Amino acid sequence: MGMKSSSDESPEPRRGGNTDDGMVVLSYILAGLILYGGLGWLGDHFLHTSWLLPVGLIVGLVCSIYLIIKRYGRFE
């Protein structure tokens, strides 16, 4: 009557690894590399430099790893 069933509650995130988690991690890494690498490539192209692409790729990878650790917590 006045009680909530357990199915009405919002589900908590699972801590076990599965294929969906792996795909999310892979997409974070690829998105960071493509976004910041693309920005670095554009900067290299328009500013006539040769160092912004590698910097953009490294920054994208570091940001991706930060977001992955923030989302899934520390490694146990």
Rank of each mutant, 00 (worst) to 15 (best):
R15G: 15
L47C: 03
S50D: 13
K4C: 00
P54F: 03
R14C: 11
G38F: 02
I65K: 05
T49F: 01
F75L: 15
G22H: 04
F75T: 06
I29Q: 01
S64C: 02
L52E: 05
P13H: 09
L52S: 01
W51S: 06
S50E: 12
A31K: 05
P54R: 05
R74M: 09
K70H: 12
S6N: 13
G32W: 04
I69Y: 05
F46V: 04
L39A: 08
L47P: 04
S6L: 14
L47R: 07
P54T: 06
G60T: 02
L26G: 13
L39Q: 02
G73K: 05
E9W: 10
W51R: 06
T19M: 15
R71F: 03
G38A: 06
E9F: 14
L57P: 03
L39F: 14
I68P: 01
V25H: 00
I58K: 05
D20Y: 12
Y28C: 10
V59R: 01
G16W: 03
Y66P: 00
L39I: 14
D21C: 05
I29F: 10
D21H: 15
L47N: 08
L67R: 11
I34G: 05
V62S: 09
M1Q: 10
G73W: 04
R14N: 14
T19Y: 14
Y28M: 11
E76A: 11
F75V: 12
C63W: 08
R15S: 14
Y72T: 03
T49D: 01
L47Y: 08
G2F: 15
Y36H: 08
S64K: 02
M1P: 14
L47H: 07
L42N: 07
V24H: 09
T49I: 03
E76G: 13
W41V: 04
K4S: 13
I29Y: 05
P13V: 06
D44L: 02
S6M: 12
P54K: 05
G43P: 04
D44N: 10
Y72C: 04
G73M: 06
L67A: 13
T49Y: 02
W51V: 02
T19A: 15
F46H: 13
L61D: 01
L39W: 06
Y36D: 01
P54C: 04
L61C: 12
G22N: 09
